[in-house]
Structure formats: C-alpha cells, structure tokens
Simulated scan of single mutants.
Amino acid sequence: MSAIGPERHVFAVGVVGGPTVVIDYGRTRFVTDPTFDEPRDYGVMAKLDPPSVPVAALGDVDAVLLSHDDHYDNLDVSGREWATTSVPLVVTGPGAATRLGGRAIGLSTWQRTELTRGDGTGAVTVTAVPAVHGPLDGTRDGSGHVNAEVTGFVLRADGLPTVYISGDNASLAPVAQIARRFEDVDVAVLFAGASRLPTKNQGRPLTLTGPRAADVAAALGAPRVVIAHIAGWSIYSESLADVRTAFDEAGIADRLVAADAGTWSLLDDS
C-alpha cells in the first residue's frame, strides 16, 4: 500500500501509530486520537516509537475524532496542541469538549453531527456510540464512567462504507447496542493491545484483547477490520500477532486488514 500523505482519497484508512488513524471519507479527512510526540516518559506510561507520519505531512484535516482527552496515549502534548489550534473541529464526548473548549463539540451517546463532504457530494454523518474503558465492574470516576468517559464513532455517507471506530472500548456490552442500531458496519477500526496499568482495575485490560476484538468483529458482522492502538506505547500487553492468532482461532482471519504504520491499510478511489 502507498504511504499516507496529504492527498485525499474517496475512502482510505491508515494507522499512523498508537490510536492515531487517518480516515479519508468522501475526501473528508478525519484523524483519530492524535498522538504526535516523539518518544518520552509520561510517568504512568511511556511512548516508545515516534509517529510514522509527521503531522505536517497530513496536510489539511477536517476533523479530529477524539475518544477521550484524559490519557496521554490518546491525546499527547503535541497532539493536543495540534488538535486545538490547527484543526477546525474536534468531535468528542461532552466532558472532553468542556475541558478542551474552542473548536471541540461534545456528543452524548447516539447524538450525531454532519460535515460537508470534501468531494462536495453531500454530507458525512458522525454518530457518537458507547464505549467502556475497562471491565464492566471497574472503578468508576467522578462522572460515573469506568476509568474515563470514552466515545466511539460511526461514520456514514451515501455510497461509502459504514465505519465503526471503537475508541478505548474493552467491552462487548456497548458493541451489542451498536450492532442493533447499525446493521451495516463494513469496516471496524478497533483499538486493541489489551492496555494495562497495574494501578487501574487490578491490571485488567482497558482496551480490547485479541479474542475480544475478534468477538467484536463477529458481533458487528464487519468484513474488514483495521487494528490500531497496539504498538508504540508501554501499556500494551498484546501485539498484532496475538490479534492475528485470536482471529484465526475464531475462524475470521480473512477479515483482518493490516499494513505497516504510515501506509494505507485500505484505499479506494473508485
């Protein structure tokens, strides 16, 4: 696959590193959870790899889809600066939008917003969908969420694949709700890696394990799956090889679409 660069496509998905994914959708460009710092130690976690694509190489971006703003592995220092000063729109949850202010809009679960398509042929609908950032019985924060308020997203537009972006979800419960509302998910971008911190919820996974990611793909019926948030940070307890094994054991290995970071996993200009 070709390298991710400033040229926009009808439909494309490519992982930059960690949870940062570029999605071209009707030539509208989205970036998920921007992390553009060089390797550094944040105390509770460390970034191990630089971004595979420098932010300047992405060209203009229409919107950031931010699952949450609380953790450096989803919004690091450079990513925060860029998202809040250089991108016209940040779509996130209500709490994050309040904290970020300015260009951020907060969508509660099932709320939607629309963006004009970059190709000028209509609109892209972005729907906020539920996510649970850890085990269902995990410790809840002051806002009542496990670990943090986290938002997933669904993208829809005429003539384009329906795309689900999980954000830092670790549970099948919200996926069951999503599957009932969206029966046509064509592409699932899943944050996996089984992220763990010994101080959080007895060290249990805060993002999808390989087997849980396979279960999500099966529950949604998604024929194409791009795995993100699985390399480049100290908190991951699984690798892409673990996810491949889990998908193979579930009998859905052919659904995984993988490419090196910095290149397009999916690309369609037809």
Rank of each mutant, 00 (worst) to 15 (best):
residue 236 Y to A: 04
residue 60 D to V: 13
residue 146 V to G: 06
residue 8 R to D: 07
residue 170 A to G: 03
residue 251 G to K: 12
residue 38 E to H: 07
residue 135 P to F: 11
residue 10 V to S: 09
residue 138 G to A: 06
residue 152 G to C: 05
residue 229 H to T: 00
residue 18 G to V: 13
residue 51 P to A: 11
residue 44 V to W: 14
residue 258 A to K: 00
residue 102 G to V: 00
residue 75 L to C: 06
residue 118 G to K: 10
residue 160 L to F: 10
residue 116 T to S: 15
residue 13 V to P: 06
residue 191 F to M: 10
residue 93 G to I: 04
residue 250 A to L: 03
residue 259 A to C: 02
residue 128 A to I: 01
residue 233 W to T: 04
residue 26 G to C: 05
residue 182 F to W: 11
residue 56 A to K: 13
residue 212 R to V: 05
residue 55 V to Q: 07
residue 259 A to F: 01
residue 234 S to I: 02
residue 138 G to N: 04
residue 179 A to R: 12
residue 188 A to C: 10
residue 139 T to C: 05
residue 252 I to F: 01
residue 181 R to N: 13
residue 124 V to W: 04
residue 250 A to P: 04
residue 240 L to I: 15
residue 156 R to T: 15
residue 72 Y to Q: 05
residue 144 G to C: 02
residue 163 V to Y: 02
residue 193 G to S: 14
residue 247 F to R: 04
residue 109 T to H: 14
residue 50 P to Y: 03
residue 211 P to Q: 10
residue 204 R to Q: 14
residue 225 V to I: 14
residue 107 L to K: 04
residue 96 A to I: 03
residue 190 L to T: 07
residue 84 T to I: 08
residue 82 W to P: 02
residue 137 D to T: 05
residue 27 R to M: 09
residue 62 D to W: 06
residue 180 R to P: 05
residue 260 D to N: 01
residue 270 S to A: 15
residue 12 A to S: 15
residue 221 G to N: 10
residue 9 H to V: 11
residue 40 R to G: 00
residue 137 D to Y: 03
residue 146 V to I: 13
residue 54 P to M: 00
residue 75 L to K: 11
residue 63 A to Q: 04
residue 123 A to K: 14
residue 182 F to M: 08
residue 269 D to Q: 09
residue 99 R to I: 06
residue 247 F to I: 01
residue 51 P to M: 10
residue 47 K to C: 10
residue 3 A to V: 13
residue 246 A to V: 02
residue 58 L to K: 08
residue 218 A to M: 12
residue 267 L to I: 08
residue 101 G to V: 11
residue 232 G to E: 08
residue 174 P to R: 09
residue 22 V to F: 11
residue 6 P to E: 08
residue 262 G to C: 08
residue 174 P to N: 07
residue 93 G to C: 14
residue 235 I to L: 15
residue 178 I to S: 02
residue 214 A to W: 02
residue 99 R to L: 13
residue 197 L to G: 12
residue 109 T to L: 06
residue 47 K to F: 00
residue 220 L to V: 01
residue 196 R to E: 12
residue 135 P to N: 08
residue 11 F to L: 11
residue 167 G to T: 10
residue 58 L to V: 05
residue 4 I to P: 00
residue 153 F to A: 07
residue 109 T to C: 06
residue 116 T to F: 03
residue 101 G to S: 03
residue 266 L to V: 02
residue 247 F to S: 05
residue 71 H to G: 00
residue 18 G to C: 10
residue 194 A to K: 07
residue 194 A to Q: 06
residue 90 V to F: 06
residue 218 A to K: 14
residue 160 L to R: 02
residue 55 V to Y: 12
residue 52 S to N: 07
residue 61 V to E: 10
residue 174 P to C: 06
residue 7 E to T: 15
